[in-house]
Amino acid sequence: MDILTVLPSSFGYVIFTYLYSWVMLSYLGIQVGVARKKYSVKYPAMYSDKDMVFNCIQRAHQNTLEVYPQWLVFQTIAALVYPATTSVLGIIWVTSRFSYAWGYYTGDPEKRMRGVYGYIGYLGVIILSICVALQLLGVF
């Protein structure tokens, strides 16, 4: 069975959403590398005892990595049945991680809340994943 005949054709949008998330993760990782040089934070240290801004840059990347695996799982499950909607929700979540990071990069951790709208995308794919599970179980 060919995968192209199994997946909905609009799953292509989801693949582009995954690629967008890769760009976002790469960007956040590069920013940590740049900040390591700027603030002289040597490996293997994760955080700085001296520079709060470095810690905010590192934390924006780390927090994104902490939620990324769950997002990938729910994004994939939801996309099997609702690919276009899931892609839109994924774009919202990924874009919010840029807003979250740029707010954090100011050195004021409260400004990370600029990315709070990402919960629309994150909770959206969780809800759609629950819908897929209930459909598979014949509940609706």
Rank of each mutant, 00 (worst) to 15 (best):
D2P: 15
D2G: 08
D2E: 10
T5K: 15
V6H: 14
L7F: 14
P8C: 05
S9K: 15
S9T: 15
F11K: 01
F11S: 04
G12W: 09
V14T: 05
I15F: 11
T17Y: 07
T17C: 14
Y20L: 12
S21L: 14
S21I: 07
W22A: 14
W22M: 11
M24T: 11
L25I: 06
L25Q: 14
L25M: 15
S26M: 15
Y27T: 04
L28N: 03
G29P: 01
Q31V: 05
V32E: 03
V32M: 07
G33W: 00
G33Y: 00
G33H: 00
V34D: 15
A35H: 01
K37F: 06
K37P: 07
Y39D: 04
Y39S: 08
S40W: 05
S40K: 15
S40N: 12
Y43I: 12
P44I: 02
P44T: 05
M46V: 08
M46T: 09
M46Q: 11
Y47S: 06
Y47F: 09
S48P: 01
K50G: 09
V53D: 02
V53F: 05
V53K: 06
F54Y: 08
N55Q: 04
C56L: 07
I57D: 03
I57E: 02
Q58R: 00
Q58W: 01
H61D: 04
Q62I: 10
Q62P: 04
T64V: 04
L65A: 11
V67S: 13
V67K: 13
Y68F: 09
Y68I: 14
Y68S: 08
Q70A: 13
Q70W: 14
W71F: 11
V73L: 09
V73I: 15
V73K: 13
V73N: 15
T76W: 05
T76R: 08
A78Y: 07
A79R: 00
A79Y: 01
L80D: 02
Y82K: 07
P83S: 13
T86R: 06
S87Y: 06
S87V: 03
V88M: 07
V88Y: 04
L89T: 07
G90R: 01
T95S: 11
T95W: 07
T95F: 12
S96N: 12
R97C: 01
F98M: 06
Y100I: 04
Y100F: 12
A101L: 00
W102M: 10
W102G: 00
G103L: 03
G103E: 03
Y104K: 00
T106G: 12
G107A: 06
D108G: 02
K111A: 08
K111H: 02
M113K: 15
R114E: 10
G115I: 06
V116R: 10
Y117F: 09
I120E: 04
G121P: 03
Y122Q: 12
L123C: 06
L123V: 13
V125P: 05
V125D: 06
I126F: 13
I126K: 09
I126E: 09
I126A: 09
I127D: 01
I127R: 12
S129W: 00
C131F: 14
C131W: 08
C131L: 12
V132C: 11
L134P: 09
L134T: 09
L134G: 04
Q135H: 13
L136S: 15
L137A: 14
L137E: 08
L137M: 12
G138M: 07
G138R: 07
G138C: 11
G138E: 05
V139M: 08
